[in-house]
Design a protein around this nucleic acid. Structure first.
Lengths: 344, 344
DNA sequence: ATGAAAGCGCTAACAC
DNA sequence: GTGTTAGCGCTTTCAT
């Protein structure tokens, strides 16, 4: 717990070279004669020397750290995407600094400050206030202040700001779902959970209504059950749906949590899924896989999603020209929660 | 995306004071006359100046960063504990640097290196190789090399190393479970999932066997179903148990995932939980809350657990004297998955 | 209370 | 190729 840190000066001295030479073998940015290189490398191994990242960053003004601000890592969706980002970042030689917003605006702000103090090379924001349909202007200002200095990437909306956006194509998801459900003969389709004030949910609602029309299905106000994103909300909304005189034959849950809640409500009411009612969800987290029955769910290919996020960040850091807005195309993973519509 | 960074020199100049004075108002480590302090603070606000954390760390050799190495943040147990740590760390003025080991030893090692390069003030390790019953000696050496310089805290075993341990009291958990189950009249109790090579599981097994004796229950080899920690394993092991001529009336699942798998197996076999068989689990993650039925589970009070971890780290950093080994006492959260044993 | 100056450990011109 | 030197932005003696 003491033992002073070894530096490039120590290495240089013992190797009989200058600190610059040691630095050169460390960064590989310049040629060094094989003899000296080996001498230095030997000592590095001998002392298990690791350069001080602080000093390095201070000197070259690049930290090789990417700030990752997520809503709540305890949510499997964010966890999946975060890990994907961490892996992709590692591959590109970057480290991730992960912070949770936890629905606390002050925390979110202070974490943003922290990232800035840490001089991260870019910040990637997933979830949090960036998802709001109407962006808080004070927040937008905060983001803009940061995005003037470093690239800012979001999976949300954040309008009024100058940042890169990589959004899930919710419209395409909904289209896919309708194609699938109608192909199974469903005509009474409900949409469960989510809040209109969240951009992605808003888009889903719009598209849901549009598609109901397009497929000539009769739109029922009661089939649109607003809730939040929790299992509890899914449970509650599903009960409402089941109590309707004409309950839907298929329900689209806004995420896996609400789908699990819906499953619980159905089980309690003696309604079998998928025999009596089909359920389909968004996100395809591990919950889809472990629920009973397993959920048919919209997947975003987290590995690729994370990679693209990191790729945008890295290119932006390098000042490469990249589009400000991009989409990730979802995919439908078919499991056991949907089946042919039954006449009832 | 350009705009040069503002520094304490800029602030000092405009305020007509020396950089040292600006530093003093920043750190609050020394007295500054009210007039100058206000002038400086005004400019800090005006420019929204944030000191460069790299420079600061370089200078005072404290980064105020805690390295958090976890097995896999996608696992709700680790997610819960990590968030608790992050919150506690924030409260103490520390930032957390979170890395996943992902069951990849090379990744784990390189993440440890990364933390060292980043000169974190301490590393806290949760899960990963630290959990192994018999610690890998090369790994122990690696840890020791680090723990000579900075405090190392683990929730695992890691013997042969000099680090602080905060372990869950698995023996107490098991005792609690037995008290509860036997009070419900259960005498045929199985233990499902987990691998003996993992310390905490090994301890659970030992205690299980001991308690079977103590309560004068007949120990059945087949009631000890080794598996891993996945839902799949829980499912498979539960099927085995249900096929026994004398199946258990209660099963203790090693964690929530295996319990969920067991639930699924039971449902499939038409065995009702808890009417026909009781299930109890460890970890009390959100899965216990959303499963059907809700699981009775052993809880660790994540908030307090995380706080203690951080507290140990912080005290160790300050060279305060603290015990090398401590325990966290679990608690039983009773929900709907256990009931009175039925004669069958 | 305040300023000057040294130094934290490294990188990157700049000479040779 | 290699060494010398000047920072990177901050904190902290040490004087005053």
């Amino acid at each position: 717990m003491d033992k002073k840190e070894i530096t490039i000066y120590d290495i240089a001295q013992e190797a009989g070279v200058s600190p610059a030479t040691v630095s050169r073998v460390l960064t590989k940015n310049a040629a060094v004669s094989p003899a000296k290189r080996e001498a230095v490398e030997g000592l590095i191994r001998k002392y298990k020397f690791r350069p001080n990242a602080m000093a390095r960053s201070l000197s070259d003004t690049k930290t090789k750290i990417l700030g990752l601000l997520v809503a709540d890592i305890r949510n499997p969706y964010y966890a999946a995407l975060s890990v994907a980002c961490e892996e992709a970042a590692n591959q590109q030689g970057y480290t991730v600094m992960l912070c949770n917003a936890l629905s606390d605006n002050r925390l979110e702000d202070s974490n943003l400050e922290k990232m800035y103090e840490q001089r991260v090379d870019a910040v990637i924001q997933i979830g949090c206030r960036a998802d709001d349909l109407v962006s808080d202007s004070a927040y937008a200002a905060h983001v803009n202040r940061i995005s003037r200095t470093i690239p800012f990437i979001t999976t949300g909306k954040l309008d009024g700001t100058d940042c890169y956006r990589l959004n899930i194509d919710d419209v395409a998801s909904m289209r896919m779902i309708f194609e699938y459900l109608t192909s199974l003969g469903h005509r009474r389709i409900a949409l469960l959970g989510g809040q209109k004030k969240i951009q992605s949910t808003y888009d889903k609602w719009q598209q849901y209504i549009y598609l109901m029309g397009k497929y000539e299905l009769t739109f029922h106000e009661a089939y649109l059950q607003e809730g939040d994103y929790s299992e509890k909300a899914g449970y509650r909304c599903m009960l409402e749906l089941l109590e309707l005189k004409k309950p839907p034959t298929a329900v689209i849950a806004v995420n896996d949590f609400t789908a699990v809640g819906a499953l619980k409500a159905a089980a309690e009411k003696g309604v079998q899924v998928p025999r009596d009612i089909s359920i389909i969800s968004f996100d395809n987290t591990f919950l889809s896989e472990i629920s009973t029955p397993k959920l048919t769910s919209v997947d975003y290919n987290y590995a690729a999603f994370g990679q693209r996020l990191i790729e945008i960040a890295v290119k932006a850091i390098q000042n490469q020209k990249i589009p400000k807005e991009q989409l990730v195309t979802p995919t439908l993973v078919i499991r056991d929660s949907c089946t042919q519509a039954q006449e009832r």
